[in-house]
C-alpha cells in the first residue's frame, strides 16, 4: 500500500460520512418543505405532490431543532421530565447492580448455587421482561415504584450473567497459585477474582444502561405522572412529531454520554493490566 495522497484520500472517511448525513438531512428537510415536489413539478406534473409530506408525519431537522431549543431553554418544560426519568434510571440501575453483581459472582463461584439459579436466569433471559409489566401493575399499581422495578428487571440480567461469566473465566493458574500459598477464600476473591472480573462487570453495565433506557420508555408509557417516556408517548398521540424526535434524541444523548463515562472509568480501572 502506498501512503494515501491528496486531500480526498486523506479525509475520505470524514468526507463520505459527513456527506451522507448532510444529504440525508437535506432530503428530509426538503420532503417537509416541498423542495422536491417543486423541483419535480415540471417533469412529472401532479404526481410530484407525493414528495411533499405534512410536518405532522415526518417533522424536519429545522423544526426539531426549534422544538428542542424551545423545550430546553425557553419554556424549560423538559427539565422536569428529564429529572424524573433520571431519578428512576439511577435508582433502577443502582438496585440492579446491588442485586446483580453479588448474585452473579456468587453463582459463578459456588457450584450448587449456580445450578439452582441457572434455570431462572435462562428462562428470564429468554422472556422479553417487558411482558411482566401488566403483572407488576397488578401487584403494585402504576406509580414510581413500578417504573423502577421494570428498569431493575431489564437491567439486572446482563449484569448478573456477565458477573457469573467473569468468575468462570478467571485464569485458573492464578487461583491454583494462590491456593497453594494458602490464600483464604476471601483473599482469593478480593485479590484475584474481583480484579479480573472488572471488564466483564463493566461490559454488563454497558448493556444494562441500554436496557434501562428501554425500561424508562416502556415503564412510563403506562399511566405515569411525567418523565421522558411519558412525554414521548403523549406527544405521539397528539401528533407533535417534532417533540417526539426531541425526546428520542434526548434519550440517545443521555445513553451516549453514560456509555462514554463508563469507558473513561474502564480505562482508569484497567491501567494496571498489561
Amino acid at each position: 500500500m502506498i501512503a494515501p495522497q491528496g486531500f480526498y484520500s486523506r479525509h475520505e472517511r470524514a468526507i463520505l460520512g459527513v456527506g451522507a448525513i448532510v444529504l440525508f438531512l437535506a432530503f428530509w428537510e426538503g420532503l417537509e418543505r416541498g423542495w422536491w415536489s417543486d423541483l419535480l413539478q415540471p417533469v412529472i406534473g401532479a404526481e410530484a405532490e407525493r414528495w411533499r409530506i405534512k410536518p405532522i408525519f415526518i417533522s424536519s431537522p429545522a423544526l426539531i431543532t426549534q422544538a428542542a431549543y424551545r423545550m430546553f431553554f425557553v419554556t424549560g418544560e423538559i427539565w422536569r421530565d428529564l429529572g424524573l426519568s433520571g431519578l428512576e434510571f439511577v435508582l433502577g440501575i443502582a438496585i440492579a447492580i446491588t442485586i446483580g453483581i453479588p448474585l452473579g459472582l456468587a453463582a459463578g463461584w459456588y457450584r450448587p448455587l449456580s445450578h439452582a439459579v441457572a434455570p431462572f436466569l435462562s428462562a428470564l433471559n429468554a422472556t422479553p421482561q417487558v411482558a411482566f409489566l401488566p403483572l407488576i401493575i397488578i401487584w403494585i399499581g402504576s406509580g414510581f415504584a413500578t417504573k423502577i422495578i421494570i428498569i431493575v428487571l431489564l437491567a439486572v440480567l446482563p449484569i448478573a450473567i456477565n458477573a457469573q461469566a467473569a468468575v468462570r473465566t478467571t485464569d485458573p493458574r492464578l487461583i491454583k497459585v494462590a491456593d497453594s500459598f494458602g490464600a483464604g477464600e476471601w483473599l482469593l476473591f478480593r485479590s484475584i477474582i474481583l480484579p479480573s472480573a472488572v471488564p466483564f462487570l463493566l461490559a454488563g453495565l454497558r448493556l444494562a444502561i441500554g436496557r434501562g433506557m428501554i425500561g424508562i420508555v416502556v415503564g412510563e408509557v403506562y399511566g405515569s405522572s411525567g418523565g421522558i417516556g411519558m412525554m414521548i408517548s403523549q406527544a405521539g398521540s397528539r401528533f407533535q412529531t417534532d417533540k417526539v424526535f426531541v425526546g428520542v434524541l434526548t434519550i440517545v444523548a443521555a445513553g451516549v454520554i453514560l456509555v462514554e463515562v463508563l469507558r473513561r472509568i474502564e480505562r482508569r480501572v484497567e491501567v494496571w493490566r498489561p
Binding site: M213, I214, V217, V218, G229, G236
Partner: peptide
C-alpha cells in the same frame, strides 16, 4: 437509539 422509543412515530 432504543428502538422502542420510535414506537409513537
Amino acid at each position: 437509539v432504543p428502538r422502542v422509543t420510535l414506537l409513537p412515530l
